[in-house]
């Protein structure tokens, strides 16, 4: 799996880099760090040769800075490619790299937030709406030992399961499949072993591929409380339909859960 990792010299990137390195130690993965230096930060002067020389200088000094950052964060990760450094608009440059490169996943650090606004703003951003690559939002540093696939009725769960298998099918993690019915007016979360037929079918399909879910449950309750329960997971996976899905209690769970979240697009 080829992963494009957006990297800055900041806390969120530090967490993202360390989390991905941990995943890479478990199964084959190539991590391509991409650092974008904002153009307006350096107030470019001149045109032509002067401007190009200035850009080259900024890129090379940023390259040194970001490589130092990587070496400070992790001692060695054989899956890590040398960082690419570009200058310009962050979203445009990432989209360009995703289009030109052969990436299966885009990863970035996104510090966990008390407000769901940051998560929804990201879903509405050009970076997400124009990219077809699944996105891994790394909110905290967690052990990658357990994964929950979060499902709801009407979701293209077969596609989600297929995509998950393609990426993480070889990972040795405890997998749980959850059908979730968020209730904003309730106070407690109830867990039931009664699951809808679709979830059972997907569980069986995953099992035939050698990826046996350990738990199949239905969770009912307020989104924040469900997110709290899921914080023990190493990663939470779900799917978002860019054309029809909007802010909802189901996606609030993904916004509030403090563990890394992998979002596929349907």
């Amino acid at each position: 799996m080829n992963v494009l990792l957006s990297l800055g010299n900041d806390l969120a990137s530090s967490i993202a880099l360390r989390y991905l390195s941990q995943q890479a130690a478990d199964f084959p993965m190539t991590i391509q760090p991409l650092h974008i230096e904002a153009e307006d930060k350096h107030f470019p002067l001149g045109t032509g040769w002067v401007k190009n020389t200035w850009k080259d200088t900024v890129v090379s000094s940023s390259e040194v800075e970001i490589n130092n950052f990587i070496h400070n964060e992790i001692r060695f990760c054989r899956s890590l490619s040398p960082a690419i450094t570009r200058i310009g608009d962050g979203e445009k440059q990432i989209l360009k790299e995703l289009q030109n490169g052969n990436y299966q996943l885009f990863a970035m650090g996104l510090l966990s937030s008390f407000s769901s606004k940051i998560f929804y703003n990201l879903l509405a951003s050009k970076l997400i709406t124009k990219s077809s690559c699944p996105v891994l939002l790394i909110k905290n540093l967690r052990d990658f030992k357990s994964v929950t696939i979060l499902c709801k009725k009407g979701m293209n769960i077969k596609k989600l399961a297929r995509e998950y298998l393609d990426m993480y099918g070889k990972a040795s993690v405890d997998l749980q499949l959850l059908h979730v019915e968020p209730e904003t007016d309730s106070e407690q979360v109830t867990r039931s072993e009664q699951v809808p037929v679709y979830l059972q079918e997907i569980g069986d399909a995953l099992a035939t591929e050698g990826c046996v879910p350990k738990i199949l449950n239905t969770l009912t309750g307020p989104p924040q409380a469900i997110a709290e329960i899921l914080k023990s997971q190493g990663m939470v996976v779900s799917s978002f339909n860019k054309t029809s899905d909007t802010k909802s209690p189901f996606f609030d769970i993904l916004a509030y859960v403090p563990t890394p979240v992998l979002v596929f697009w349907s």
Partner: peptide, 22 residues
Amino acid sequence: KMQQLLEYYNNLKLTPWLEVVD
């Protein structure tokens, strides 16, 4: 400061949760 604290606690074999609040 958060980054320094994360490193400090990681060295103590603790993995703290990080959260941003407006």
